[in-house]
Computed example of a mutant assay.
Amino acid sequence: MYLITGASGGLAQTAAELLLESVPADQVILTTRAPAKLGSFADRGAHVRYADFAAPDSLEAAFTGAERMLLVSTAQVGSRIGFHRNAIEAARRAGVQYLAYTSIVGAGIEENDAVVCTEHRATEAMLRESGLRWNTLRDSQYAQAVAYFIAPGAVAMGQMVGAWGEGTVGFVSRDDCAAAAVGALLGRGEDDRAYEVTGPAQLTYRQVCAMVAEISGIDVAYVPIGDDEQYAIFDSMGVPREYDEKAMSSSPIPWNSDDMVSFSRAIRLGHMSSLSDAVQTLAGRAPRSMRSVLEEAAATWPPAGAAPQAAPAEAAEAAR
């Protein structure tokens, strides 16, 4: 049987739909903290089970019966490593034989101190030492993060401001990441290796900014800044520097600024620069381009001069 964790989340739901195209529903286990959200999958015959990484006692029973598992990484900075340890240990106890894990490009570079990369690197180490067969799927930055979260503000203000410098990113569609993860889950990859999952081209944010300007028909300037300036912008918005659950509840952005600034710095330093054929290898299809995702999102962008709005929930979900 095949298992996908966090199945009420965006990437995991897409992966679940793709998995059901390849295997019978009664061979699929979907775990979530919110089983009611997966009623449509249960109606089709999939096994929907409650599981909470923060409640280790809930995990072993939820994973029992699965032979191959996709562990979709959590987004909670500070808690991620412990939650993933709970999941990996429970998977081993439950008899899971193989585990694919959604990591991030840059996690294999020791000097990369981006918060998100250090946490994924720690999880990858636990997985290698678990005794399970494994793959890590090091997803590049989602193209949707730019198209739905960064581009709207850039169009509204006429400038794309950030600390990315001239570093390149192999922006990848979230749907391609889901398809690659399902390919690994189905055994299309080579066990016990990391796959860097990228789009078809490495681009700088300056190049992406030019695409946004061309597609929108609005003059959007690229404005590179440093870490201190980036922190000051987030400070003025009321974004907490460190992750704190109480403080994050009132933040206008669902990430703390240490996380975001260190991620931008990693791009600037070239730590997130990667290009691979993993989507073709694992999903059996060519990856979508950054331009195609921007063109799809353009209808949601505000007119020039509009006041920037808080990102909708789907933009946050797509961001990383």
Rank of each mutant, 00 (worst) to 15 (best):
A61C: 12
A61T: 14
A61W: 14
A62P: 04
A62I: 03
F63L: 01
T64P: 09
T64C: 08
G65C: 06
G65K: 04
G65M: 05
E67Y: 04
E67D: 08
R68D: 08
R68P: 07
M69H: 02
M69F: 06
L70D: 01
L70H: 00
L71F: 07
V72T: 10
V72H: 08
V72W: 08
S73D: 07
S73T: 08
S73M: 06
T74W: 11
T74M: 13
A75M: 15
Q76I: 15
Q76F: 14
Q76D: 15
Q76R: 14
V77T: 11
G78N: 02
G78D: 02
G78Q: 01
R80F: 04
R80Y: 04
R80M: 10
R80V: 05
I81C: 00
G82V: 02
H84F: 11
R85Q: 15
N86S: 15
N86Y: 13
N86A: 15
A87C: 12
A87T: 06
A87I: 06
I88H: 12
I88Q: 13
E89I: 07
A90L: 02
A90F: 03
A90T: 03
A91V: 09
R92P: 02
R92A: 07
R93P: 11
R93A: 14
R93T: 13
R93L: 12
R93H: 13
A94Y: 08
A94M: 08
G95C: 00
G95D: 00
V96C: 05
V96F: 07
Q97N: 00
Q97V: 01
Y98R: 10
Y98W: 09
Y98D: 07
L99A: 08
L99I: 05
Y101H: 12
Y101T: 10
T102L: 09
T102N: 11
T102K: 13
